[in-house]
């Protein structure tokens, strides 16, 4: 009897912690329906959902969040994969290169924002360099890259951390490719280029895709970066949720939860997609 229960007992602590997580989600759902007994709200209603779904600013925020996440994830994947490919091809790459690039991964997003402040504001380092190179004549000619409606500062902050992350996981999976498969492709008539695009690249694609999903999901639900350098309109979704949550007007609380629930729903879809991609990885690499 103990034998059968053993794995479950070993998993008990982790499931206790995860149940806090799940309860958080369930609680958010309940609160989104207006059920917050602690505040005296006990009536279940769809009113808050209607409010949100009828609000144009919500959809602007949603679109903005999706745009930011997609752009930063996409750029990270493009540049990251390419750099990883170059490092992979150049076997003689020094140890320095292979360790240094990982630094941004350990740096928290808030500091990444500070770096954007330092480098890319109108009074920042890049602007000074451009002035001294004669490209711009005064401070104002440097574009506004923070607090801007294009979210450029946000995207750069996320990309700064995203590129090394993608390099890391891409190199990780490239290392695992059995090089004899490449030899086989060459022997069957493929050129080195064809072997890359027909064999190596398709094999690492699911992994790159999971990397994109992780970056997208993180930036989609993250509060700090858009709060620090995002525009006041449109705001990113987590920032909107936070503002409504901390509002003195407690009746906005359920609305905040609606936004949280929507963020979570979208994330759960991403979890599903992630799992599918993961299955492909297992199929290709055993």
């Amino acid at each position: 009897m103990y034998k059968k229960l053993k794995p479950y007992l070993m998993l008990l602590p982790v499931m206790v912690v995860m149940s806090v997580f799940i309860l958080g989600l369930i609680s958010a759902v309940l609160q989104s329906f207006g059920y917050i007994p602690i505040f005296g709200m006990t009536e279940i209603t769809l009113r808050h959902y209607m409010n949100i779904l009828e609000s144009r600013s919500f959809f602007r925020a949603l679109a903005f969040s999706i745009y930011i996440s997609f752009a930063s994830g996409g750029i990270s994947v493009f540049i990251g994969t390419y750099v990883a490919y170059l490092i992979y091809r150049n076997k003689k790459e020094t140890l320095w290169v292979r360790t240094l690039y990982k630094i941004p991964i350990a740096v928290p997003h808030a500091i990444a924002v500070l770096l954007v402040f330092i480098m890319l504001t109108q009074s920042g380092v890049l602007s000074r360099i451009l002035y001294n190179l004669g490209v711009i004549d005064n401070l104002m000619e440097f574009p506004e890259l923070i607090f801007d409606r294009g979210g450029v500062g946000i995207i750069i902050a996320y990309t700064w951390k995203g590129i090394p992350f993608i390099i890391m996981i891409t190199l990780g999976i490239l290392k695992k490719i059995d090089l004899r498969l490449v030899d086989t492709a060459l022997n069957l008539g493929a050129s080195k280029k064809e072997a890359w695009w027909q064999v190596e690249f398709p094999m690492i694609l699911p992994t790159i895709f999971t990397g994109f999903i992780l970056l997208f999901a993180f930036s989609f639900g993250a509060f700090e970066v858009p709060f620090l350098i995002g525009p006041s309109a449109p705001r990113a979704l987590p920032v909107v949720a936070y503002i409504q949550y901390t509002s003195i007007d407690l009746s906005l609380r359920p609305q905040a939860m609606v936004i949280n629930v929507i963020i979570s729903m979208i994330s759960l879809i991403l979890v599903y997609v992630y799992i599918l991609a993961f299955r492909s990885i297992k199929k290709y690499f055993g």
Partner: peptide, 23 residues
Amino acid sequence: IKTIILLPVIVPMVAVSMGIHVS
């Protein structure tokens, strides 16, 4: 169980912590 353990990687803490705060 494996899927549940995976969740916090993709589902943001922002929503969960606001949700559980009251509790």
